[in-house]
Computed example of a mutant assay.
Amino acid sequence: MSTLFTKIIKGEVPAYKVAENSQFLAFLDIRPNAKGHVLCIPKKEIDKIWDLEEEMYQELMRFTRRVSIALEKTVPCKRVGMAVVGLEVPHTHVHLIPLNNMKDMDFSNNVEMSDQEFKDLAAAIEANVEL
């Protein structure tokens, strides 16, 4: 059965995409801890990050780094935090979260954003991504 993220990759479920190449996709989390919370995923459906082949893991980190740099250019923050939790969706994903304090890493806190705010933010981040 396809995961939610596989459905996003296939275009069956909409997403606010910020970066994409042949192997990876980055999009805004719809329940963000902070404005600009991004998920970076491999297009290949693999449950756990440690199950990725070494080369794919390294490429995911390169992709994630590029998205993080763009995120930092776009969203005012002290730094961009990274987390790999993996309990929500059984598909490898890296959280990039703009941080101004430690509470921004608390996954029980969510920021409300309108559809237009998501669209505008996704376009702004995408404009700063250098793949």
Rank of each mutant, 00 (worst) to 15 (best):
A26L: 07
G36V: 07
E45F: 06
E54A: 15
S2Q: 13
L28E: 04
E88F: 11
G36R: 01
G11T: 03
H95I: 06
M1F: 09
S114E: 06
S68R: 11
F118I: 10
N33F: 10
L39I: 12
H37R: 02
V111A: 04
V94R: 00
C77I: 10
V94H: 03
I125A: 00
V84S: 12
N128F: 07
D115I: 12
M113Y: 05
D120T: 14
D47L: 10
E20K: 03
S22F: 09
D29V: 11
P42E: 01
P32V: 06
N110M: 11
P32S: 01
F24W: 06
V111P: 01
F5G: 03
P76R: 02
A123G: 01
I69A: 12
I49N: 03
R62W: 09
A34Y: 12
K44G: 07
F118C: 04
N100I: 10
M61C: 12
A127G: 10
E53F: 07
V94Q: 05
L87K: 08
L131N: 08
E117L: 03
Y57H: 14
K73W: 05
A127F: 06
E20G: 09
D104Y: 07
M105C: 12
N33C: 15
V13H: 05
L99D: 06
P42R: 00
P42I: 01
K35P: 03
Y16T: 07
E126L: 08
C40N: 04
D106R: 04
K73Q: 14
N100M: 11
G11N: 03
I46L: 07
I9N: 00
N33E: 10
N110E: 13
V80F: 10
G36Q: 01
Q58H: 13
E72I: 08
H93G: 05
G36C: 05
L60F: 07
E72M: 12
S108T: 15
N109I: 12
R65A: 11
K17V: 15
E130A: 12
Q23C: 09
P76W: 03
H95E: 00
V84G: 06
A15S: 15
A124Y: 04
K103W: 09
I69Y: 11
K43A: 02
K78I: 09
A122H: 04
V18K: 04
S68K: 14
G36T: 07
P98T: 03
V18W: 05
I30P: 04
K73E: 14
E54V: 13
M113V: 10
C40P: 12
A123H: 06
E88D: 15
V75P: 02
F24H: 06
E130I: 12
V75M: 01
I8S: 03
A34F: 11
L71N: 01
P98I: 02
S108F: 13
G86C: 05
R65L: 12
I125D: 03
T3Q: 02
A34S: 15
A83V: 14
E112P: 04
L87Q: 12
G86Q: 00
K17N: 08
V13F: 09
K17G: 08
D115P: 02
E45V: 13
I69L: 15
K73S: 13
K44A: 14
Y16Q: 01
K48Q: 15
E88C: 09
K73G: 08
K7M: 10
M105Y: 13
K43N: 01
L121H: 00
A26K: 00
D115C: 05
A15P: 02
